[in-house]
Design a protein around this nucleic acid. Structure first.
Length: 411
RNA sequence: GGAGGGGUGCCCGAGUGGUUAAAGGGGACGGGCUGUAAACCCGUUAGCUAUGCUUACGUUGGUUCGAAUCCAACCCCCUCCA
């Protein structure tokens, strides 16, 4: 099977420029390609995972991924998919975010092999641009007429929301990134989400117009779940990929709880399992789709957090959902016995562990019968945790059906 | 610089002097049903030292017994003109 065939069967391709020529090239030589990641957030989230997985697959077929960290473009802010101006981040925050991103790429890509992945950063060239020279050399290749026709711009204008000149320039810089990578690293392909199509095509055209070379673009579908919602965001926030912001257990749970209709699509996108094996899983799990969800959760978690974390998460889930076993791996609060001289309010503990943002919220949860102490519903919002609730030094408090934590009491 | 329109809770959006912590919708969370699913039904959706108190309708000040609502100044956004 060729790379393009596998990409298609797994559902990675949304649009592609000159597919025939690209496909021939991918089959005959090892190429360099890039995907850009801005560092506007403290971590990547699941929404970027499809981009990471496609890089992984390309690398498996012998191609060189270039991970372009957008330290330069982050200073501007991509208007695509945003209906309001982004906050301007300080250089320090950008650096912190960038290093968090790098940690994740290290898990998915190989930075050592022959066709090793390369990390690049567009502030290398963007920071030293000279405005006049830049406009003369590259600005002439862009027409306002065309720029105005881009969705990212059109939507802002239609909604009568302001689009600053700074943001308006984003697409030019992204096009220029491609040009620079083409010059520096012979990068001939840019991949991105479907919302990046316009920006990618701009880069291809800039390369063609300024130096007459052909380059390629490929977009992945915008990842939505079966309800059509953008993937990766929940009320608590995004499904972060860095463990310090989103635990491996929660990550496992995220995949375990995926919509039925998404399971096999996601197995193809987010695991390394061969396609025929996925087909087999599909027929094996006809009677119990939850088996397939567990496989998905195991594999997706293994890729990001490792095998141990995945099996630990699985075990924790089995323990907590199947019975009364209190799993060791749940989040924990430690208290001393003498602290029980003062009332230990259950709502306070819920806030402490981070399952609720305020005491009021925690109390409302209790009022709505959403909180359990050792499997039985807490009836009064002012109920305290008492020493007699603690057996074997432990008590378990549950918020909803899925969030649990342990209170450990020591002498 | 001129003329006009606008800024309401997580988001959209109603409200033009009084039981308005603010209709309605969306989202999210909790409960029920289930399979840790979807759909559906119900509830919650500012904070706190909690049956009361404190914040809240761009900002600041004013009028009033009482303001998201009226007045003034300022800030920001949009449209048109220069």
């Amino acid at each position: 099977m060729t790379l393009i065939e596998e990409l298609k069967q797994r559902g990675f391709i949304h649009q592609c420029t000159n597919e025939k020529a690209l496909s021939d090239m991918l089959n005959s030589e090892s190429i360099k390609f890039y995907i850009g990641f801005d560092c506007t957030a403290k971590s990547l989230h699941v929404g970027s995972l499809i981009q990471i997985m496609i890089m992984r697959l390309f690398q498996k077929y012998g191609h060189h991924p270039i991970v372009l960290i957008g330290k330069g473009t982050t200073k501007i802010g991509d208007p695509s998919g945003k209906d309001e101006t982004r906050k301007i981040l300080s250089s320090k925050d950008i650096d912190i975010n960038a290093s968090n991103l790098e940690k994740v790429f290290n898990k998915f890509l190989n930075f050592q092999s022959n066709n090793k992945a390369i990390l690049s950063d567009n502030s290398l060239w963007l920071n030293k641009l000279n405005y006049i020279n830049f406009l003369r050399d590259y600005g002439k290749h862009f027409t306002i007429n065309k720029m105005l026709s881009f969705d990212s711009v059109k939507i802002r204008l239609e909604r009568e929301q302001s689009l600053s000149f700074v943001e308006f320039n984003y697409m030019i810089f992204q096009a220029y990134d491609f040009f620079e990578l083409n010059e520096r690293n012979e990068c001939i392909l840019q991949i991105g989400g479907s919302d990046q199509w316009g920006n990618i095509v701009n880069g291809i055209e800039l390369i063609r117009r300024s130096i007459g070379k052909e380059s390629f673009g490929l977009t992945t579908p915008l990842l939505t779940n079966a309800n059509g919602d953008k993937m990766g965001k929940t009320a608590d926030g995004a499904i972060w990929l860095n463990e310090e912001f989103f635990s491996s257990y929660d990550y496992w749970q995220f995949w375990r709880n995926i919509d039925d209709r998404d399971v096999f699509r996601f197995l193809k996108l987010f695991t390394d399992l061969p396609l025929d094996e996925i087909k087999k899983i599909e027929s094996d799990s006809k009677d119990d789709i939850n088996l397939a969800k567990i496989i998905l959760a195991n594999h997706a978690t293994t890729l990001l957090h490792g095998k141990d974390a995945a099996s630990k998460a699985k075990k924790t889930a089995q323990d907590t959902f199947s019975g009364n076993i209190i799993s060791e791996n749940l989040p924990k609060i430690s208290l001393l016995e003498k602290e029980f001289k003062q009332p230990v309010y259950i709502y306070d503990l819920i806030v402490k562990i981070g399952f609720s943002n305020s005491k009021s919220e925690a109390r409302k949860l209790i009022r709505g019968h959403g909180v359990k102490l050792n499997q039985s519903v807490v009836k009064d919002e002012l109920d305290e945790l008492l020493l007699e609730d603690v057996s074997d030094n432990k008590a378990m408090i549950s918020v909803g059906k899925k969030k649990h934590f342990i209170v450990e009491v020591n002498q």
